[in-house]
Amino acid sequence: MTASTTPLIRAKEPAIARRLFSAPAAGPFAALVLASVFFSLSTDQFLSGGNFSLILQQVMVVGTLAIGQTLIILTAGIDLSCGAVMAFGSILLAKLAVDSGLPPLVAIAIGILVCGGFGLVNGLLVRLVPLPPFIVTLGMLNIAFALTHIYSDEQTVTGLPGPLTALGRTFPLGRTDVTYGSLVTVALFLVFAYALNGTGWGRHVYALGNSAESARLSGIRVTRLTVGVYAVAGLVYGVAALLLVSRTGVGDPQAGQTENLDSITAVVLGGTSLFGGRGTVLGTFVGVLIVGVFRNGLQLMGVSSVYQTLVTGVLVILAVTVDQLSRKRTR
């Protein structure tokens, strides 16, 4: 048995068109475009800059959470605690600034760092004990939820100083008012898209999600990487906490309860596999927009919010089905 010695290797990338089609976010992106076209045709108000800015505002908090969630899911983990951690962070930075009288920027920094601390603890438990991410973050969900209520004494924090709500202000872009917070969210998406796609760290995250053991054998420091991913995700939740208070103008202990799962919904809709190792953060951005566009469009059509949730549920199951079937085909 002698293999031919003429190598047939092309060092260049596959054609652009093929790459676009094979990109994991291609399907979700098509769905987003179709939905947008549909809502543009069925309602007058959908297709306007103001409405798009509104959609961005509506999704910026869950979108930011979904960035952290994407990182964790890419490592074949999951984070059920992101919304609760964000809620604690938002109460913490609001109360530190209002009740404890800390300078607002210091309060913000502490809030974000504490969220990072929650992530760090999650990561350490997942990697060092080790425990399944589902269980660790389920526990952390309850812990953060309880701490939020204990610390806030069930009271909404009001009278926030300017820096805490600065990201909720708008600036004109053409004839559309856009919040600074939306920009922060978009910027974070771009930063992490680069980090995942353009750096060795990103490749290691994917490798870890493919197989932790093979990543270790490839010389990747798996423990450091895993703990780092959870900690970075926590910091991102901290930014989400700031975005949350800037948008609502108060520190609300009841916040963040639906976002735990909504962030997972967005990640899955964006074509990222729950089994880890496949997916993109830009896909997650598309997934977030799909949820936002459907909610917004159905609302404009006068469909009640229960049906919006129903549609979201159907979409999630559809997305996971597509993921499973495509995985089977490539096997």
Partner: peptide, 11 residues
């Protein structure tokens, strides 16, 4: 190619 491995594309 040094090892004579034939594959479609490196990507």
């Amino acid at each position: 190619s040094e090892l004579g491995i034939r594959l479609g594309s490196i990507g």
